[in-house]
Amino acid sequence: MGNSEKPIISFKNVNKVYPNGTQGLKDLNIEIHPGEFVIVVGLSGAGKSTMLRSINRLHEISSGEIVIDGKSITHAKGKNLRLIRRDIGMIFQSFNLIKRSTVLKNVLTGRVAYHSTFKTFFGLFPKEDKELAYESLQRVNLAEKVYARADELSGGQQQRVSIARALAQRPKIFLADEPVASLDPITTEKVMDDLKRINQDLGITIVVNLHSVALAREYGTRIIGLRAGELVFDGPVEEATDETLQAIYGKEIIEAQEEVAQ
């Protein structure tokens, strides 16, 4: 991706200080370009989740500015904020599905931002939305589960339903906050493969938080490393050498991860 293109996400001198005085993010300056697959790595408490959730303003920042596709989400209000958020799909570690609803209904909630509250409250979605929901389920190989209840599915299937829900939103950006933390290795690979395919086929910009260095190396095109809220690495996957990773994680963690891998 050439950097002549306008960034789709810009962090400008972003700081986040919690009420107890802990600095969650420290003077972050980051530009992410359309179509990138960025993986954010770091220890627990390094600020990964805070960074990711500040992109769609689930977390408020203390100072600085975040610009999404040329518009400041930091200063947006009301309808403008809703319109910016509509372009940002979000996938959570805990899936955040409506357990007792069908897969189809869950995916349709991705369309809520496009309609009046009255209509969506009564589940009145146009036919195009249903087609889009079905198409999104096909992309994650779950079309046959369209009428199953969400709580009848395995963890991996639930996570893929949440990917389909985000897809149904037709977003420009996908945020995934530790999307595979509660999944086994085989399911993890399926979910990451889905994200990679969505990135490649649809050109959606993807930002994923991961604990695993191995997964970051396998799937990302670019790695951002945070340590105690500071940016300590930002570059192509090939440049994330063991030395670099030590700067992000500290020596002991790398060795521990390697032992687990063996």
Results as ranks from 00 to 15, higher is better:
residue 57 R to Q: 13
residue 114 Y to V: 03
residue 221 T to S: 08
residue 260 V to C: 04
residue 245 L to N: 04
residue 239 E to F: 09
residue 57 R to E: 12
residue 81 L to Y: 08
residue 167 L to D: 06
residue 251 K to G: 06
residue 233 F to R: 00
residue 75 H to W: 15
residue 128 E to G: 06
residue 262 Q to N: 06
residue 177 D to K: 04
residue 62 S to R: 05
residue 145 K to Q: 09
residue 184 D to Q: 15
residue 136 S to G: 10
residue 129 D to W: 14
residue 134 Y to D: 01
residue 197 R to I: 07
residue 162 S to V: 01
residue 27 D to N: 12
residue 25 L to P: 13
residue 58 L to H: 09
residue 170 R to N: 15
residue 118 F to V: 13
residue 71 K to A: 12
residue 167 L to G: 07
residue 221 T to F: 01
residue 245 L to T: 02
residue 67 V to G: 10
residue 45 G to R: 02
residue 47 G to W: 02
residue 103 V to F: 03
residue 21 G to R: 07
residue 183 L to D: 08
residue 184 D to T: 08
residue 19 P to R: 02
residue 36 E to L: 00
residue 30 I to C: 09
residue 230 E to P: 05
residue 218 E to G: 09
residue 256 A to S: 11
residue 253 I to G: 00
residue 145 K to L: 14
residue 18 Y to T: 00
residue 148 A to S: 11
residue 73 I to W: 12
residue 25 L to I: 00
residue 206 I to V: 13
residue 114 Y to D: 07
residue 8 I to G: 00
residue 217 R to H: 12
residue 231 L to K: 08
residue 148 A to N: 05
residue 3 N to L: 15
residue 55 I to Q: 06
residue 139 R to N: 09
residue 51 M to G: 01
residue 223 I to H: 03
residue 103 V to E: 04
residue 205 T to V: 00
residue 128 E to W: 11
residue 6 K to E: 15
residue 149 R to S: 10
residue 242 D to C: 06
residue 260 V to M: 14
residue 1 M to N: 10
residue 157 Q to P: 07
residue 41 V to Y: 11
residue 89 G to W: 12
residue 29 N to L: 08
residue 164 A to M: 06
residue 163 I to Y: 03
residue 31 E to V: 05
residue 195 L to H: 07
residue 160 R to G: 02
residue 30 I to V: 10
residue 209 N to I: 05
residue 92 F to N: 07
residue 127 K to L: 15
residue 148 A to F: 11
residue 170 R to P: 05
residue 66 I to K: 02
residue 59 H to T: 00
residue 205 T to P: 03
residue 49 S to M: 00
residue 78 G to D: 15
residue 135 E to Y: 14
residue 47 G to T: 01
residue 116 S to D: 15
residue 210 L to F: 08
